[in-house]
Design a protein around this nucleic acid. Structure first.
Lengths: 129, 129
DNA sequence: TTGACTCAATTACAAATGTCCTTCTATAAT
DNA sequence: ATTATAGAAGGACATTTGTAATTGAGTCAA
């Protein structure tokens, strides 16, 4: 059913950087990694190649350099990844995950307020029952 | 940093069943799988063994049968798994995930109401700003 | 006591993943 | 030209994962 193979952790890490940069060569992605992330240049190369093979990135030749850009929108990847986790961890029920997050994270009252507004927007401010 | 190796998808699937059954042998876990899940008995055996090796399950001999029971609480596994995903997908920020879930899922107004109450409980019923 | 079964234990194995190395060509700096 | 460098291409390799076959021992029904 999934239109393309899933992303591995390392691939996701790299994909996020490409999303952020919009368009980048291996070097740029490599440089965008946090210094704490000790990884070889060619490894990044490999991940980018695999991301392209899996259909997540577009490539274009800029001179003799490959420039990668997002092909699948982050939102799509997020939806798929989260969806899979919800499936695996909560048998497909989303609410338990939301509950977990809300209970388990220490949100600022700012955050909480934002959430309230979000809920209001969603359901035209219904106040319950 | 993680106290034990992470769980793979298939392992998670099996772990969930053990959590539910509290205590079960291979056969019981096998039988608890949905019929749609076409998998060999010995495969389940393997997953249970690995789960034990990884430190997620306890085993005890019941006669010559192995009975498996949870060693790590679901909540812990959930926290770790979700945490990792938040890290990977949102750079560690929880709010974006919550936002995604709320926006992307079609919650019933029931659900929304529950969420409101949850928020109230969290932050001593503040009503905004 | 001979199957028929059930389970444990072991082994196997291909695919996916994380990671790097090597080799080659283009390019830039001397 | 000569060298240093960067990036492409491709190969390599151990580990993890998903999944199963094999072998052997105990158990129960005939």
């Amino acid at each position: 059913m999934p239109p393309r193979p899933g992303l591995s952790k390392a691939e996701l890490e790299i994909a996020r950087i490409v999303w952020e940069l919009k368009d980048a060569g291996v070097r740029q992605v490599f440089d965008a990694l946090p210094p704490s992330r000790d990884i070889d240049f060619t490894t990044v190369q490999t991940y980018l190649r695999r991301l392209e093979e899996k259909g997540y990135l577009n490539v274009r030749l800029e001179g003799r350099n490959r420039m990668y850009s997002p092909k699948v929108r982050p939102q799509t990847v997020i939806r798929e990844t989260v969806g899979e986790m919800v499936e695996l961890l909560f048998g497909g029920e989303t609410m338990p995950l939301v509950r977990h997050l809300v209970e388990d994270s220490k949100f600022s009252s700012q955050d909480i307020e934002h959430l309230r507004q979000l809920l209001n927007r969603l359901e035209g401010g219904g106040d319950g029952k």
